[in-house]
């Protein structure tokens, strides 16, 4: 049974929310920026990625009064409140976002801060992991080295008495911003 894009998106949002991620439909880039500024809670680190360039994100965020750090993020990443990255695509069955993260800055922005904001084109949702294999294969063959992250919800642990606790080493909050008009290319974030 082939699902419509709307059904896949619906399934994606439900699955993401089950694992503690927040999905937000953003009607415009400005709405996305407003959301980020409202929730960032401090300094934002912004690595270089196609959607950020396309939207001129750093400029928009600063206009809204956010403190944004670009370029060499290493020092800032350790104290920043939030990081922003794009996503290549999402997986409906588990609410996973797939992020090509070969550049270290992308990995820092998605790992060290308390909050991780992900920009995702809502039309780029695949049904499941198996459907992602051909793209993973193309990403792998395009360049090496490469580092691809499949992220499902915020960081978690249950290592003490099996009690689920959010925010072990990675972000405590994962916000997935669904924004039309971002790149249609599954190989691009």
């Amino acid at each position: 049974m082939i699902k419509t894009p709307e059904a896949l998106l619906e399934q994606f949002c439900q699955a993401a929310s089950r694992v503690g991620a927040r999905t937000v439909r953003c009607l415009s880039a400005k709405a996305a920026v407003d959301y980020i500024v409202r929730h960032a809670g401090g300094t934002i680190i912004l690595p270089d990625f196609p959607a950020a360039r396309q939207l001129n994100l750093a400029e928009l965020l600063r206009t809204q009064g956010a403190e944004v750090i670009c370029g060499d993020l290493f020092q800032a990443a350790t104290t920043a409140a939030a990081g922003i990255t794009g996503a290549n695509f999402g997986l409906a069955d588990t609410g996973t976002v797939v992020i090509e993260s070969t550049a270290q800055a992308i990995r820092l922005a998605s790992t060290l801060p308390e909050r991780h904001f992900v920009l995702l084109n809502p039309h780029k949702i695949l049904p499941d992991h198996m459907a992602a294999v051909p793209i993973l294969r193309r990403l792998h063959s395009r360049q090496s080295p490469d580092f691809i992250a499949f992220i499902t919800g915020p960081s978690r642990t249950a290592d003490i008495e099996r009690v689920l606790t959010i925010g072990a080493h990675g972000p405590r909050e994962l916000h997935i911003l669904l924004l039309d008009g971002l790149s249609d290319d599954f190989l691009e974030t």
Binding site: A15, V19, T94, L136, F147, I148, F150, I151, G170
Partner: peptide, 13 residues
């Protein structure tokens, strides 16, 4: 259904 992080590594990033 999925662990939080599945990291695919190919070569030294």
């Amino acid at each position: 259904a999925a662990s939080s992080y599945v990291t695919w590594l190919r070569g030294p990033s």
